[in-house]
Design a protein around this nucleic acid. Structure first.
Lengths: 191, 191, 191, 191
DNA sequence: TATGAATGAGCATTCATTCAT
DNA sequence: GATGAATGAATGCTCATTCAT
């Protein structure tokens, strides 16, 4: 099992990557944050890039896991959609730092490692698409391009890391409520 | 005024920043791309960061300008919303590279320059919020938190740079149509 | 505390600064001189300028320390003057390189660091002025502008770094004897 | 005859070299100061180093010229000594900037050009040595090492550029008086 | 004369990584 | 495990100088 020290390092890295960005964060910074020498860090990590990759992977995996659970449940599509929004926004807002790193810094990884993240992300998009497709198939949702609607929803949700304040007045549930209302019923007053 | 060479440099920079990211792009890379020596670049730019700042500013300014024009027009809120979506998505998809740089790399700027971009971005959000508020006031839109609905719409639209393929089958108009439908009337089959 | 390597670097820097001047000496030169890579130097120094500052400070501090000791002694003003001349010239001639750097390169430091050196130098001038003032007060020295006489003496002594040959026939004692004779009794044959 | 523009350039260079030091002064700085483009400067000068060399040469030549005139005059050695001190100090204080450059920046020249200055300087020292030797031969001055006494006097006088304030209360005549008194009769109260 | 674009070598500094102890 | 010295490549940037126009 991963040692405590490793967890400490990952945590420190996430915090720093969030605040300063991946590139602006030096290995020295991370070492300072955990009270180790730069060289000692390499007993736990194999490199700065791998640290980022690990961080990103750990984040996206959680998203996929939870989404699969929601999809597997026996509820209405509308209900699943609300749950999925709540889940996604909860993860995003619960660890804005982690989300920031995941959503912003993936370019920093070379092409190959980035693909790993991309694949997991694509899988996540698939799950959302399936949710919407099922809703359409069941008549709960209006027909249309499910994939693109999923992209719109995910885009809106991912953007949250840009403005959400962990210590602000808004909880993730409140955001989820508003977003669910918006995405399910639209802005317009259809009367 | 702006010389051809400067434009060439900015273009090359945008392309490179998009592909490799701001940090992974060296001044040397840019110089190579325009066929100049590294040092010669500094006749045109005052530094790598300023290049990014300039690029970002030029992009966000265009968004604000167009949004103001739409807001000033005499049309229904629904119509304005559609126009705004078209405009935004057209800009984003027309120069995905530029958008990528704007939306992804602003952290790379120091705090002060970043603020400049942030301010312009905030102003843009204000314009969208106003559009929605006016729709609510006029009874065209259902009441609610206009600012957060604006954030959702913008998030969805900005995310497009992540998946849009300039040479793909989808035009920005098609995306705008689908997004307008989604945001105005929602996913659900309200029947 | 100070490691051997650091001393080695300082020594090499002094030698190079003396020979080629501060600006004409590159960090590479210093690295070559101590057999390290350029980058490795930064384990020991925090920058080229600080190296110079450190060198200068170390030099001027020694001057002040010794001068204070002489002033504190219970001897005639004439005797103190001779001792001070011997001391100053011994330091200057013993490490002409160090003196050269101190006396020639302080402009190279920015304004603030330069001030540190200037302050220490001013203090040294004060000590000399006091020596002469005490001589005047005691009737040993003819009355006059003590500060300016101190400036003349110091100017003459500092100039020595310009012509003194460490491997020449002249010892610092010989120079001190001649200078003491000159400054105490003058050139003129007062009969 | 040297054009006005050239004089302007030299003047600007001296001023800048004095204030910021030779190395810290860029050709751009000089160009800015005279309102020309960097490239245009090279119609008048052949390089930055030559500019310094010219400046230095022009300065030292004046010293030599005046000293020869004094030596040729028919006066007592004491009187010549006073006149020489007045002359030297007047030149030094009249254009402290020029003196600073001459006395501080000669290292900046490569070895060969520096030699030119060194030769002129050596010649100047010879003239002073001759003055003192003649005083000794005539019995006006106490016997001793004339060259070293000249070095002491010159050192004291040259040092003046380090502390003299062009806009201060002290005139060069006042300094010359005090220095003449000091060098001729010494500090000590010979009773 | 004057310009200003272009050069190309040079510079101080940073940094992820390695490795002997 | 931990250290910290050492690496060496890379980076952004400066600058004196050249030269076609």
């Amino acid at each position: 099992m991963a040692s405590n020290k490793y967890e400490e390092i990952v945590l420190a890295a996430v915090k720093l990557f969030d605040k300063k960005g991946y590139h602006a964060t030096s290995v020295q910074d991370i070492a300072d944050a955990v009270g180790l020498q730069k060289g000692s860090l390499y007993h736990y990590i194999s490199g700065k890039a791998d640290l980022l990759l690990g961080v990103a992977q750990r984040a996206i995996t959680e998203f996929n896991l939870r989404m699969e659970r929601i999809l597997a449940s026996k509820e209405s599509a509308q209900s699943k959609m609300k749950k999925a929004l709540e889940m996604h926004l909860q993860l995003v807002t619960h660890d804005v730092q982690l989300s920031t790193v995941l959503l912003r810094e993936s370019v920093a990884l070379g092409e190959n490692p980035q693909q790993v993240i991309q694949d997991a992300t694509d899988q996540y998009l698939d799950l959302w698409t399936r949710l919407i497709e099922e809703g359409m198939a069941g008549g709960e949702f209006r027909p249309g391009n499910a994939r693109m609607k999923a992209l719109a929803v995910l885009g809106a949700c991912n953007w949250v890391y840009r403005w959400y304040q962990e210590d602000g007045a808004l909880t993730s549930e409140m955001v989820a409520d508003i977003y669910a209302d918006l995405f399910l019923d639209g802005i317009a007053n259809s009367k």
